[in-house]
Structures are given as structure tokens and as C-alpha cells.
Amino acid sequence: MSTSETSNEAISHAIPFLRFLISMPPRALEEFCHALMECSGQIRADVLQMFEIAEDESLSVDERGHALRTIVDQLHLIPDDEGRFGMDLARSEELAASNFPALAYQVGRMNLQESEFADRLRHLMKTKHITQKELAARIDCTQPAISQMLNRKCRPQRKTLNKIATALAVDVRELWPDLEVSEYLDSVAEFQQDDRIMTEPEAVALRDTSQPRSKLKGQPLPSRKK
């Protein structure tokens, strides 16, 4: 391969990267270049490769998104509050919950659900005279998994809950009273998703203009601050 071919290839690899650089505001560009200078040769080469993936229109939006997010890792030398690369999965929940009340609320709910479940499971196993080993065998998992659930160290997946309910011959809501609440909230979150392709009945209903327009215009309410 001639030198000019190699350099042409190098330039073509660098084009997505250059395009990205040009689009950056000057301040961000300065910080970006600084971070890049501090990287090893390996990581610099990886950054270029990630830009190539991110710009490749033949790849999926998901792949290109993952590539762009990779650059976050590559250019952040010490990103974490702990002063180390990455985050400790368990500690990051604690840390984030102490900063974000909404997450603290969610963590509180999860802890409560898991401990209620552990109590209910323990009670049911006792009344039905089932050992951890027996239950594990019935639901096709290991005894330590059951033990961890009883210790509130294993949040069961929905399918595990179903299996346990069947094995103990109880309604799954007896094990996890919040189940329908979570499902309802999941459906509310799903309903608000952009880009979703409508189902045929939804499309028919929204194309149907035989329903007359409402005459209601609504009414404003005063603000209490005024």
C-alpha cells in the first residue's frame, strides 16, 4: 500500500471526527481537545473509531447512540464523585438518593416492597411447610436465590414472582401487593413515549372525523400567587 493511500484512508476515517469538531462551540472544542491530548494512543484511536460508527448512516440509531456515549468515558479522566473511574453500582444508588428526593422516594418504595415481599414469602413458606430447597426446586432456581429474597437482597423479577405464586398456590398479589400499581404506572410511562407507531385501531380512531369537535373550550383557573 502506498503512503498516499494510507494517508487518504486516515483522512477518510477522520472526516466524521472533523465534522464533529467544526460543529462545536469554541469553549467546548478547547476542553475536548485538551481531554483528547491527555489520552493514550489507544484511546485516541478508539475515539476516532467511535466517531466513525456514530456517523455511519448504515448503522442503527441505537448503535450510533452507544458509540457517541462511549466517548463520554474516553474523554472523562476522573469522572466520579468517589474520585475513581466509573461508579460503584450499589453506592451510586445511595449517593444519588441523598441528592435527589424523587429517587430517595423510589428507593424507599422499592425497599418497602422487597421487605413486605420477604415477610409474606416467609409466612407462606412457614404455613405451607415448604423449605427453601423445595421452593427453589419447584421454581427452577437455587436455594441461595430464595435465601437472598428472604434477606431482602434479591428483588425478584416479575416472572419469578409468578413462578413462586404458582408454586405456593397463591395469587401473585398476595406476594407483591404493589404489582398492579407498578403495572399501571408502567403503562402510563409507555403511553407518553414519543415515536411509537400507533396500532391500527388507534390510527382508525384518530383518522375518524365523524366524531364532531367538542364545543368545550375549557376554563382557566386563577393562580394562587396572584
Binding site: 399501571y184 408502567d186 403503562s187 409507555e190 403511553f191 388507534e202 367538542s214
Partner: peptide
Amino acid sequence: VRRGAANSCVMKHRLA
């Protein structure tokens, strides 16, 4: 139309 595990229904209002 039923949505999610909760089997929720969707209602529509055609704005004035």
C-alpha cells in the same frame, strides 16, 4: 385498544 399489563383503555376528545 388495551394498553400494557394493566389493560388500560384510551379515550379521545376532539378539540374545539
